[in-house]
Computed example of a mutant assay.
Amino acid sequence: MEAHQLALSLPTTLAAASEARHQAVDAIAGWGLGLGTEVVHAAELLISELVTNAVQYAGTGSVSLAVCLDEAILRIEVCDTSPVLPQPALPDADSEGGRGLFLVAALADRYHAEPTETGKRCWAEIDLTSKPSQEVACFLPFQRS
């Protein structure tokens, strides 16, 4: 399978996740690979959660998104300027947020967060050769790889 990729620099605004989702889904559809709605919807949600977290914690720094399909792996990477790695915790029942990393854990076949020279990189991968499981398992901390 031919490699395809998209790279975006995103504003650190509330609209960043929406912009990233739309541009990435358009790009994935434009690759013409017929990945299927389950894969595209999973990628869309992963992008949304990872970009939202980056914008929330990057402050005024930069946020970038890279989506790459190489062989049978769809990889989503979001980089930001905060050196603080995600620390998932169980949210209170009344909390409006705090569930994003659980969604990442449930949707991705592999995911990780790692420091970079300028902040951090959070990534998630969807293995296109694996069959969807009926079980959803979440592993903490956000260090599964």
Rank of each mutant, 00 (worst) to 15 (best):
E96N: 13
A3D: 06
A29S: 08
E49S: 07
T37K: 06
D70G: 08
A113F: 12
A106G: 15
R121Q: 12
A3H: 08
L90N: 11
R75P: 04
T60D: 15
A113L: 10
V136C: 11
A7F: 10
C79E: 14
L140S: 12
E19K: 01
G59T: 05
T52I: 01
L101T: 07
E38V: 14
A29F: 01
Y111L: 04
S82L: 01
A105N: 02
A42L: 11
G98S: 13
A7Y: 07
C138A: 09
C79Y: 01
E135H: 15
L140I: 13
Q134D: 12
A43R: 01
L6I: 03
C138R: 00
L107K: 04
Y57R: 04
V104W: 03
E125M: 15
L140D: 06
G30W: 04
W123I: 00
E44D: 13
P141I: 03
G34R: 08
R121N: 14
P91L: 14
V63Q: 05
A106M: 07
S133V: 08
A15P: 01
F139C: 08
A20S: 06
S133Q: 11
A106E: 07
E125W: 10
F142P: 00
V39Y: 10
T60N: 13
S130W: 10
P141V: 01
G36S: 02
L101G: 03
G59P: 03
Q56T: 13
L69F: 01
H112K: 10
H41K: 14
P91M: 13
T116A: 15
S62A: 15
L128W: 12
R99N: 12
A89M: 10
I73K: 00
S82T: 03
V67C: 07
